[in-house]
Design a protein around this nucleic acid. Structure first.
Lengths: 169, 169
DNA sequence: TCCAATTTAATTGTATGCAATATAGTTGCG
DNA sequence: CGCAACTATATTGCATACAATTAAATTGGA
């Protein structure tokens, strides 16, 4: 116990500067904060389209693969049916998608873009460029950062795959 | 419109490979996915302490500065009172903090760690190391990634500060 | 001093996000 | 075929998140 004197007055730099638990030293918190702040940058742009951020990335996925089942959509978006079911119902109520059971396998629900859902893609086209401008950072650096994040994510996925191979005990 | 033919059969690699809107090209989504997956790594470790991830980072902040008011706590954690009020009430019901009005300024609510809240810090001490082990990545690389995220976050903060200087119109 | 503007928390409403469970459809094996 | 194991989606409950509003306390002039 190096810091056995903990008073209530919160002397700055006294309670945890040498600690592994310092907030500013946590990669997890840098990710958490950065993700939220980037999402906040999107908010006003998406508001013009009447979309939330999660609805936006769901449409990104569907613009690439129309008619995808909920399960594989969730796998790409890292979301489960508990989140996707109400979200897709919302997109349906907005007239952007249709939800139809697969006739060959009635368990699967396929999500199809409507005309309006297709049309939204053109309106969203300018968003990536606008966001880049806001940061004013080098495109090269943003790309590099993205690749590192994808690599870290891949490492984590690999970790889970290893676990399930060993027959989770 | 380079892709005016959009059929329902979702030909892989046909609808958006050349597009700026491709999911895998978005820095925002890499952040969003990575943040969620890292949080998922924490979950089983935090579960042993009976904490959620947001409760954990709130305690990280309090371990550094005990007795901090809700406002400044929220500023450090990028959370507003709508999120913090119920979260802090929960931590209080768990016996980890006390919430007391500042006598000099009754608007402010100060959050003080209890004995149990202080004690929790020792139990959490092993978490950062465990997380590092899981990834198996070089500490150097993880540090570098964190610094880049903090820099991006700083750029975004600077962007908002600039905006408010111009007298938000 | 008095009161309008400001500041801090709390509240309300909507949207995620995830664990656990429920339900329906499918598959595989005897 | 009959049924147990499996799979896909939906539902429920709890915990974030954030915008907008409310309420209470404080501050800063006129």
């Amino acid at each position: 116990m190096l810091d056995s004197h903990h008073d209530q007055t919160a002397m700055p730099g006294e309670q945890g500067d040498h600690s592994l638990l310092q907030l500013d030293h946590q990669l997890c918190f840098a990710l958490y904060a950065c993700s939220k702040e980037v999402t906040r940058l999107y908010r006003p742009l998406l508001q013009e389209l009447g979309l939330t951020y999660t609805q936006y990335v769901t449409l990104l996925a569907l613009w690439e693969r129309d008619g995808e089942p909920v399960k594989s959509l969730g796998s790409r978006l890292y979301l489960d049916s508990g989140t996707l079911t109400p979200l897709l119902k919302k997109l349906e109520s907005m007239g952007l998608v249709n939800r139809v059971r697969d006739r060959a396998d009635e368990r699967m629900l396929r999500v199809n873009l409507t005309e309006a859902g297709q049309a939204m893609r053109a309106k969203a086209g300018s968003i990536p460029r606008k966001l880049c401008e806001v940061t004013g950072m080098e495109l090269r650096d943003l790309e590099a950062l993205r690749l590192q994040l994808q690599q870290l994510n891949a490492v984590i996925q690999h970790h889970y795959e290893e676990d399930s191979e060993h027959g989770e005990d």
